[in-house]
């Protein structure tokens, strides 16, 4: 990586404006394990029929947040760019 001459303000209208460094590998592995966990526990597994309550709160929020995270990790690896929030 070449050093930059200073802090560059990203153009606010560009969706690819936020440049990030790829996170350390250990962190990335942990994030991937977490999203693999979410994929399985929230979307897989036996669903019991009948007299039950699925008492899971705020799933969508967490899930979407983590998907964005994994997307941004993959994107960061390729091009140093995160997806728009």
């Amino acid at each position: 990586m070449s050093p930059r001459p200073g802090r560059i303000s990203p153009a606010p209208e560009s969706p690819h404006a936020h440049r990030v460094s790829p996170p350390p590998s250990a962190v990335r592995q942990k994030d991937i394990a977490l999203i693999d966990l979410l994929d399985r526990l929230l979307d897989g597994g036996v669903v019991l029929a009948g007299d039950i309550t699925l008492a899971v709160a705020d799933v969508d929020l967490v899930y979407v947040g983590l998907r964005a995270l994994v997307s941004s990790v993959a994107a960061a690896e390729r091009q140093g760019v995160t997806l728009p929030q």
Partner: peptide, 23 residues
Amino acid sequence: VLPLRFGTVLSDPEALRAVLDKD
């Protein structure tokens, strides 16, 4: 093992016994 989906809550053990009986 058949893992259940996260967040599966039943009223009491008898409800679980009924599920085991039925399925």
